[in-house]
């Protein structure tokens, strides 16, 4: 078969119906140091090992259809991030969790999954807010100070250029750590495709403006504890957005 004929055949394939598993996952340990692309590859390979009936994108270079709600930066742990996995058939959510977990590298774990109809809005587009937990000596004082500032100007790299940006408006609210640890805080921050703040920029601002030692800031343990849709403060956890089960 000639290449041109093959190309034609592939684009002519009709759109296959997708059965989506919306799964939440955690990561800790060694996998914390993976970049987002490597993390995606880890999930893809685990799905393949588990022989789950994943759907592939069409075209020249088919990829497994898997969408993450928000990229997870290097060095960030999570107790509740999300991904949508498209399967070619209806699948029991509990089996999906159990089967995938058996094949994930240690440190990655699916917490739960729900079967949802093919979402109209991509999971990426509905994220507005993230909750984080920071752990470090003196973090409560520094973060409290940060919340009292009018502006927090930091430098970030965008398309190879340095850019000044004010991240203060992206910090939404701060609270004591849920477990009462004096060296930890919980907070909400803007997240998603429209307004997003990376945790390392927040830590950077703490050492710049809030008297936090640079090395302590860099060694702060960062855990993403949740992702939410809708406008703050009327936010809803991602897994409650598409509640209509299949």
């Amino acid at each position: 078969m000639l290449q041109s004929e093959r190309e034609k055949m592939m684009t002519m394939q009709e759109h296959q119906k997708a059965y989506v598993q919306r799964a939440s996952f955690m990561r800790s340990g060694a996998t914390v140091f993976l970049g987002h692309l490597d993390l995606m590859t880890c999930f893809e390979r685990a799905c393949r090992r588990a022989e789950l009936p994943i759907l592939y994108s069409q075209g020249y270079n088919p990829r497994p259809m898997m969408v993450f709600a928000l990229p997870l930066g290097v060095g960030i742990e999570t107790t509740c991030d999300y991904l949508d996995v498209s399967l070619d058939r209806p699948y029991d959510a509990d089996s999906f969790v159990k089967e995938l977990n058996a094949f994930l590298p240690s440190g990655l774990q699916i917490i739960r999954s729900i079967a949802i109809p093919e979402p109209k809005d991509s999971i990426m587009s509905i994220v507005t807010t993230a909750s984080y937990r920071f752990e470090a000596k003196g973090i409560r004082k520094a973060m409290t100070e940060a919340m009292e500032k009018e502006t927090l100007i930091v430098t970030k790299m965008a398309k190879g250029k340095e850019k000044q940006t004010d991240i203060r408006p992206l910090l939404l609210s701060l609270s004591q750590a849920s477990d009462g640890d004096p060296d930890a805080v919980d907070f909400y921050a803007s997240a998603g495709s429209e307004r997003n703040v990376r945790p390392d920029l927040i830590l950077n601002s703490l050492s710049l403006y809030c008297g936090m030692d640079r090395e302590v800031a860099e060694n702060t343990r960062v855990i993403r504890t949740g992702l939410f849709a809708r406008e703050y403060p009327r936010i809803v956890p991602i897994h409650e957005v598409e509640v209509r089960p299949l």
């Binding site: 340990g29 060694a30 914390v32 140091f33 993976l34 090992r49 094949f103 590298p105 440190g107």
Partner: peptide, 10 residues
């Protein structure tokens, strides 16, 4: 690439 130095592979 810090992931080079942490192990934890499948």
């Amino acid at each position: 690439s810090p992931a080079r130095y942490v192990g934890g592979e499948f």
